[in-house]
Design a protein around this nucleic acid. Structure first.
Length: 153
DNA sequence: GCCAACGTTGGC
DNA sequence: GCCAACGTTGGC
């Protein structure tokens, strides 16, 4: 089975590459995703898949590193926690709605790859990330896009 | 701060 | 099942 590639967004004020770098084992559970399409993408992730880390709502907007999937999808525990901002009263442990994966930092890019650079790079024109109004936070990318972006570091 | 683009909710 | 109203995301 071939490796697949993905891109995940996070706001650095909430959880950025700095947080991931300091996390135990440079690993985190990617919790709080509350969009069905994004959730389904996470459920399709397999061990070893590559994931780009993108800073949204940030300055600069950029891909800041690469991660690897180190645990496949399971129920996001924050959906059951009434004190969590991600609490979902309609979710139960028997009938969970939301999933997460665990990812481990592979490489923090020496220099962030800016959104404007992506937008100006041939071969990346059809990236969902660059589509006007795109809000999806977990996005599949092609192997070619993965490779081109690594060449931009 | 603005607003486009969606996703969700709820009345009917 | 439709769709208007509303809320959120996120670039600019």
């Amino acid at each position: 089975m071939a490796r697949s590639y993905w891109l995940m967004k996070s706001e650095p004020d909430v959880f950025g590459i700095d947080h991931l770098e300091r996390a135990p084992g440079r690993t985190t559970a990617w919790d709080g995703v509350r969009n069905y399409q994004a959730r389904n993408h996470m459920r399709a992730m397999r061990l070893g898949d590559g994931v780009l880390f993108y800073h949204s709502n940030a300055d600069p907007l950029a891909v800041v590193g690469s991660m690897v999937v180190t645990k496949e999808a399971y129920a996001d525990p924050t959906q059951f926690d009434p004190d969590s901002p991600y609490f979902d009263p309609k979710a139960t442990p028997d009938q969970p709605r939301w999933s997460l994966v665990e990812v481990t930092l592979e490489q923090r890019f020496a220099r962030p790859v800016l959104r404007e650079t992506l937008a100006a790079t041939p071969g990346l024109e059809s990236m969902e990330l660059l589509r006007r109004g795109s809000r999806l936070s977990v996005i599949p990318i092609t192997e070619s896009e993965w490779r081109i972006i690594h060449d931009l570091i």
